Computed example of a mutant assay.
Amino acid sequence: MAFDALSPREVIEAVSNAGARKGHTKLAKVFMSAVSAGCLLAFACGTSLSTNATPWFQENAPGLMRTISALVFPYGLCMILLTGADLCTGSFMFTTVAVLHRRLPWSKMLIHWVVTFLGNLAGSLFVVAIIFGYGNVFSAEPFKSTVISFATKKQVTPAFHMILLRGIGCNWLVCLACFFGIQGRDLASKVIGIWWPTFAFVSLGFDHVVANMTFIPLGIWTGAPHITVGMYIWKGIIPALLGNIIGGGIFCGTYYWYMYLLDMDTLPLYAVGRTAVSSSPSVSHLSGAAAKETDTERSST
């Protein structure tokens, strides 16, 4: 039986191409793309919170409600990937592979991380303040108490190391969603590939640094006790960010580079001379479809 999908080696080649292109994109475009991604993910976070606003089920079947919430949340990542917006967590994999593949310098990778992070934060805070906040989306009960309870469980209850470890597991799965999104050739296959790893990280309660840009500031906006901006930076950003970098950059990006690209001929820096190298036996097996630029290569998470 034949499957209309790229092989893992073709996918990681596409990831490398996308990472190199992302790293050389104008910073203004990168920032605006990241703002869009932050906004889109914030909408999914809002849906997740509203789904959890069921007091009886929270008391009697919390696992069921987490599962249902996890089933609807992935639409946010689908919108981000299919529109080509830049999520810093996805960039941790894309640009790491491009650097290891010698298509992007370390300096441009780090700059891209900073710009996408700031853009994601700006987009998330815009939705939190303008759409959710002044729009009074979560001002009524039981939605307000759900936001406060969720933010407290995310921010106050766990220790620093717990959030860091959850961050590793989170972006490991998120970057697999990016991987599968590229692997499928048709829209339905891409959506299904993106959906299930994202469902997995939400259902397990892992920490995504960009999702936390909505969950925790919204908790602060609605008056969650014991949560301050300083605490959010210390426990909501730093450990989740470090964990997401490890999960996406090492557990996904470095691993798949080692498995499928390390034995290929070294490619010139900045993707110059790609045509000459592509004729080597080590990459001649790649299909013509893999050599073409796909829409999903423009995505990140």
Rank of each mutant, 00 (worst) to 15 (best):
M1S: 11
V15S: 09
S16T: 05
A18M: 07
A20C: 08
A20H: 01
K26F: 11
L27R: 06
A28Y: 15
M32Q: 01
M32R: 14
S36W: 05
G38C: 08
G38M: 04
L40Q: 00
F43C: 15
C45K: 13
C45G: 11
L49H: 07
T51W: 04
T54H: 13
P55Y: 05
Q58D: 10
Q58A: 15
N60M: 07
N60S: 07
P62D: 09
P62Y: 04
I68P: 02
I68L: 13
G76L: 03
A85D: 02
D86A: 08
F92M: 09
L104C: 01
S107I: 06
M109I: 01
W113E: 01
V115M: 08
T116V: 06
L118Y: 03
G123W: 00
G123C: 03
F126P: 08
F126G: 09
I131D: 01
G133N: 02
V137S: 14
Q155V: 12
G169L: 12
W172M: 01
C178D: 08
R185Q: 12
D186C: 04
T198N: 07
F199G: 08
V202Y: 01
V202H: 03
H208C: 00
P217S: 05
P217E: 02
G219F: 06
G219I: 05
Y232Q: 11
A240L: 01
L241M: 10
L241C: 09
I245A: 02
T254R: 15
W257K: 10
Y258T: 15
Y260G: 12
M264D: 11
M264Q: 09
A271I: 00
V277A: 14
S279D: 06
H285I: 14
A291K: 15
D295V: 14
R298T: 03
S299T: 09
S300D: 12
